[in-house]
Design a protein around this nucleic acid. Structure first.
Length: 574
RNA sequence: ACGCCCGUAGCUCAAUUGGAUAGAGCACCGGACUUCUAAUCCGGCGGUUGGAGGUUCGAUUCCUCCCGGGCGUGCCA
């Protein structure tokens, strides 16, 4: 993969074009490899666009940091950049006209922020359970995964998205057993998922009083796992099909697609082979009648169970089979699993099992874990029937967006469609703006907020840009027709736009969409300040209007692009 | 009990993964719409970064202990 410093300058996007020059000059002056020169972004923008703290290099050369900074400032001659010494820091400032020229050229092009990481990545995300409705808990995996898929694709990855449906396991034994006792065809026909959820909840209510229930459930799952096309399997298929229809509605709404929708059952005929393979590798042991892989040497005191004493498979069995299958099929460089943090032990275990088997590709597996969504009132529990349906959250957000439109822009055409975009945008962005690792307390007031650091704020800024461009006599400004010196008064906007490519890179490399979300907020903020202070249309100077229109177009394009990567719709009017 | 994660302004979160005077939004107070959408913008208020040590030029960030919260800990997923 090409590193920043070895790439030709024309392929460097945004501020990278300037930082790479500074790094190259520093590397030359310090006789170091450019890769070892790390530039920082000063917290305080008045210090410039980049900064080089001299502490470490000074130690190596025996100078004091301020002395080294001063020496470098005197030596360095960088095209279109000025240096400034502040104590031990060497700061870099980009000349405003070349800055505007470079950023405008980049942001008006269609490949802004594109990367060249030519790698193959398998990405598993969303993965709801069959026979249960999607609830707010599924939102995170779904939107984080979908967004990461787009971001990584932009960076050059060949991405394969897999929806690993929870369509297998002992829970289906429970469901089948519950159906046989209390199932109702009419209720199922009318509201399939609701009815199945009722059965599931009822099972858990009654299993304590009636131990024969669990026996029936285990027997039913046993029937399923025989692979025979019997009654159990017919029921399971019906439940699966009904669930998929429901899921598709949500995915269509969120604009999410998968290369493969493969439930756990897809790997069913590989399960026996997997167990035999583990045995052949000599890692399988029996313990209390179950088949386990001991992991004490890997630092885990809990072994990985691959078969119950009854001979049925477990979650880990299926994930191991899936991992092997994906390795054989895709020969991936990365295999990412966007799954909640409560499954961390599971992933450590299943990677450790592959380690024990001598599979070095296990190191390419990453658990992209994320914090749980909790309700302010207490824990959600599917078993107790306490769920907040994802569809309800989306509906409520869109309703509120409709009310807001009626209030703020009652003449808007196509209000329903825009309300849908704004409502979804609020919910999706709210999720993606937080670091994924942190737990989220679901708060209606915040999720439904359309002001401040929200999705609708970004959408609004985008719509404002569209509005200006719509009213312009000639909205399509070619970069060649712009005098960039006329934008020399707007370095804040140019810098914010210029950091966009690096934000995409950071979001991808850290598997952290919030890095992109935060960058978009800064861009929108700079954009709002820009057109507040600078009249665009009818500013009295044709060349100036052209330049400002180009800046607005660059802003609009970047916001639309970034929102697209996050999966937030970008209406042109709202 | 043990393991992992989290703790930053009244609330929700940032802080370039060890850098400069810890920043935004919400809430609150005060200002800006006859001019490209006020879902916006500008100003003010707000901090012992849970606590105590340690590592070093420098710690919100790394280490140890403690406090508080979340999740997990062989036959669920």
């Amino acid at each position: 993969m090409a590193t920043l410093s070895t790439m030709p300058e024309t392929t460097l996007h945004g501020l990278d074009r300037f930082s790479s020059r500074a790094r190259a000059a520093l590397a030359h002056a310090l006789e170091q490899d450019p890769e070892s020169i790390l530039l920082e972004v000063p917290r305080d923008e008045t210090h410039g666009e980049f900064s080089f703290p001299c502490f470490q290099m000074a130690k190596a050369s025996g100078e004091t940091p301020p002395a080294l900074a001063a020496r470098l400032a005197a030596e360095l001659e960088i095209e279109a950049m000025q240096t400034e010494v502040v104590g031990p820091f060497l700061n870099f400032r980009i000349d405003t006209t070349p800055l505007a020229a470079a950023i405008l050229e980049g942001a008006l092009a269609s490949d802004y922020g594109k990367g060249e990481q030519n790698e193959t990545t398998v990405l598993e995300f969303s993965s709801p359970n069959i026979a249960k409705p999607m609830h707010v808990g599924h939102l995170r995996s779904t939107v984080i995964g979908a967004s990461l898929a787009r971001i990584l694709a932009r960076l050059g990855h060949k991405v394969t998205r897999i929806n690993h449906l929870g369509d297998w396991g002992s829970q289906f034994g429970r469901l089948v057993a519950a159906w046989r006792r209390w199932g109702n065809e009419d209720a199922f026909a009318a509201h399939p998922i609701e009815h199945l959820l009722e059965l599931y909840v009822r099972f858990h209510e009654e299993e304590e009083k009636d131990p024969t229930l669990m026996e029936e459930a285990k027997a039913a799952f046993g029937e399923l796992e025989t692979g025979e096309d019997g009654d159990s399997r017919r029921l399971w298929k019906r439940f699966t099909e009904a669930s998929l229809l429901e899921f598709d509605k949500i995915y269509a709404r969120l604009g999410i697609e998968f290369e493969h929708i493969r439930g756990e059952s897809w790997y069913e005929d590989r399960l026996e082979g997997l167990v035999e393979w583990l045995d052949a590798r000599g890692v399988l042991e029996e313990s209390d009648g179950a088949q386990i892989v001991d992991l004490t040497a890997q630092g885990m005191d809990t072994p990985c169970l691959v078969k119950t004493a009854l001979g049925t498979t477990l979650y880990a069995t299926r994930d191991l089979a899936a991992a092997r299958s994906r390795w054989e099929e895709f020969s991936f460089d990365h295999s990412l699993y966007v799954v909640g943090s409560e499954q961390e032990l599971h992933f450590r275990q299943f990677k450790a099992v592959l380690d024990r088997c001598g599979e070095d590709w296990a190191a390419r597996i990453e658990h992209i874990s994320f914090g749980l969504i909790r309700m302010a009132e207490g824990k959600l529990s599917t078993r107790e029937g306490k769920v907040l349906l994802l569809s309800k959250v989306l509906d409520r957000a869109c309703e509120l967006a409709m009310e807001t439109i009626a209030d703020k822009n009652p003449d808007l055409a196509d209000r329903g469609a825009v309300a849908e975009q704004v409502g979804l945008g609020a919910v999706i962005f709210h999720d993606l703006k937080h670091q994924r690792q942190k737990d989220v307390v679901f708060d209606w007031k915040e999720v439904l907020s359309f002001e401040g650091d929200t999705g609708p704020y970004l959408q609004y800024t985008h719509a404002r840009c569209c509005s200006i461009l719509r009213k312009a006599a000639s909205p399509n400004i070619a970069f060649q027709d712009v005098d960039p010196s006329l934008l020399a008064d707007s370095p804040e906007l140019m810098v914010a736009l210029g950091r966009y490519p690096a934000a995409i890179r950071e979001a991808g490399n850290r598997r952290e969409p919030s890095a992109l979300a935060q960058a978009l907020l800064r861009i929108a903020s700079a954009g709002n300040a820009f057109y507040r202070d600078r009249r665009v249309l009818g500013c009295g100077d044709e060349a100036l209007e052209r330049a400002r229109l180009a800046a607005v177009a660059a802003l609009r394009n970047t916001l639309a692009d970034g929102l697209g990567l996050l999966g937030v719709p970008a209406p042109e009017e709202m």
